[in-house]
Design a protein around this nucleic acid. Structure first.
Length: 201
DNA sequence: AATATGATCTTCT
DNA sequence: GAAGATCATATTT
């Protein structure tokens, strides 16, 4: 399990290192849902016009200003939740958005969470889809991902491939801050988000 | 293959 | 009141 030391750094540094790591979700019945992170985006605070924290602390962005290694889950477009991990030093308002995942374990569960027949490629290739597949909602906002008993955390890969070809681009779905190349993804993965493919083509 | 639209919630102006 | 770190479906090229 990744420790707080890993998260307590500048988000554009943490985001590319999360590619290839394993997101793990523990359900009530002790079932394990696992997948490889293949796409992330870094956000910072007052210097990043694309960030929720750009205009300072608000009720929604409160956890971004807190300790690293905490989940920041927000609700967007009236429909979807998105999962971030808080990074940086205390008070710095940084986070990494998890944008796409390659499912490994609990695929049948994920399929049920989403829409029943659905291709493996479409289970978690987008931030809203990840939260559906992994049963993540705002109840998990503020959760500490570095505690042993946490129902959600990030692991080092074990049997999975460790070396990834990580490349960067502009972030997706934002109007400002296009100059920053803070979206990172595994160039060889088929599981990156669908919207990314549309925009970059 | 590209573009449009509906769903409909939260936050900040 | 408008915009938003989205997604699925429908409609048009």
């Amino acid at each position: 399990m990744l420790k707080r030391r890993f998260y307590s750094r500048h988000s554009p540094l943490v985001a590319p290192e999360l590619i290839g790591k394993i997101l793990v979700r523990k359900l009530d019945d002790l079932k394990l849902i696992r997948g490889i992170i293949v796409e992330t985006e870094a956000y910072t605070g007052s210097d990043d016009p694309a960030s929720h924290a750009y205009r300072g602390l608000t009720p929604r962005t409160q956890v971004m200003f807190g300790k690293a290694g905490i989940a920041y889950v927000y609700f967007t477009y009236g429909f979807h939740n998105c999962l971030n991990v808080v990074t940086g030093k205390l008070g710095e308002a940084e986070a990494v958005l998890i944008r796409a995942i390659e499912p490994i374990d609990g695929i049948e569960f994920m399929r049920k969470q989403r829409k029943n027949p659905i291709k493996d490629l479409d289970i978690a290739n987008g931030p809203g889809k990840i939260c559906q597949a992994f049963a993540i909602d705002r109840d998990l906002n503020g959760l500490d991902l570095t505690r042993m008993d946490s129902p959600l955390f990030i692991d080092e890969p074990t049997t999975e491939k460790v070396q990834r070809k990580v490349v960067s681009s502009s972030r997706i779905g934002i109007r400002n801050g296009f100059d920053k190349k803070w979206r990172f993804y595994d160039e060889e993965s088929q599981f990156v988000s669908a919207r990314a493919n549309i925009i970059s083509s």
